[in-house]
Nucleic acid binder design. Structure first.
Lengths: 206, 206
DNA sequence: TCATATTAATTGATCAGTCAGTTAAATTAT
DNA sequence: ATAATTTAACTGACTGATCAATTAATATGA
């Protein structure tokens, strides 16, 4: 086989390799994924990888770049800033949860996480979008405090930190530990769980 | 050099290798840690590892077995079951946090986590002690509900899940993502943060 | 002396990365 | 149109490095 036709609609080789690499990386981790694995998954031969990428590291960078979920979090800016806390928080947390636990995003997290664990100074992918979510939550909480819809005594920053950490803890227990006691919930139920426990402390007493 | 004297107080070779392996595994991950690394760290030659362990996998198992923090969590059974919620929860969560973030325990978690991420069916180490903590929290919450010290409407199980998930999320953000906005807190402050946000929702309205 | 502990040298497997050579598509010349 | 030429895409065998694991030789303490 040689040069393939420039058929439209077909993904190009580069993308094809990147997508195959994403799957293999997610399955076996970057260190354990061999070029042979990736080539087999992509339906090509190992040598071709080096036609499109300088080395394995560059392939990883390309995978991260292409599949970065950052743009997904750009959409997080919620429409209803003036919705009451229960509605707003339910919608926002659910949206964030759907994004993070999507196949696309979590495959990537799996890959980066092993690197992250051991001294790699890969741009801390999750470190990029967590602040984004924190920021949205925090701004909303502050806004609602001025409106009197949330208790003034609590710190908006701290409440946002705890809300997000709780969600993140749940995701980790599901995706990393496969904790059955948490896997049994749907996304909606998870958000309810968190809000049922945390919201009452945030709302004005009444 | 050959056989070393049986001096008391000195750790024996087996332990010495296990401890060196723990450090190297934590630093580089199991897959990337070479026997040469481990041997250098232990001050021996690579071949000797195979005098004490069948293979690298067996060494990992030994590391896990020896450094398993399970016994630490056995001590978690708290003394003051009748302490009021703020005190009890503060003390218990702080204790759990101290254990998990100890050098010894988290090195091990780092090591197992990379394996866990990619299809290894290593006995899910963290899956062993999380239920333990959940259980303690849940039993306490229920007890205090019967005493009227906690709201009856909330679910003890769900509250325990959220409390633990919040703590776990914070630990992950600190240890995996090195999130500065969370690293700046001391253990005491982290527990305060969580309780300040979550407790008010659990206590009877007053 | 003799079982035990340790080393140094070695083996075979595997892997990332290279490269000379092949093929089909694209381009140009006729 | 179509043959000739060029070029981009691709292959697969190879290389050197590295690694886990083995083993023969050897040193040491009992």
């Amino acid at each position: 086989m040689a040069r393939r036709p420039k058929t439209e609609g077909t993904e190009d080789r580069r993308e094809q390799i990147i997508n195959a690499a994403l799957r293999v990386f997610a399955r076996k981790g970057f260190a354990r994924a061999t070029n042979k694995d990736i080539a087999r998954e992509a339906g090509i031969t190992p040598g071709l990888i080096y036609y499109y990428f300088a080395d394995k590291e560059a392939l990883l960078q390309a995978v991260i770049e292409i599949h970065s979920p950052l743009h997904l979090f750009e959409q997080l800016e919620p429409a209803q800033w003036d919705a009451p806390p229960p509605e707003f928080l339910r919608a926002t947390l659910l949206q964030a949860l759907d994004i993070i636990e999507s196949e696309q995003v979590f495959s990537l997290i799996r890959t980066v996480l092993s690197e992250l664990l051991h001294g790699a100074e890969t741009p801390l992918l999750p470190g990029l979008f967590l602040p984004r979510v924190i920021d949205v939550l925090q701004r909303y909480l502050r806004l609602q405090q001025t409106k009197g819809a949330l208790r003034a005594e609590i710190s908006a920053e701290e409440a946002a930190q705890v809300l997000l950490s709780a969600m993140m803890g749940l995701v980790m227990r599901r995706q990393l530990l496969r904790d059955a006691s948490v896997l049994r919930y749907s996304h909606e139920e998870l958000v309810s769980l968190v809000l049922k426990t945390i919201l009452p402390g945030l709302l004005p007493t009444g």
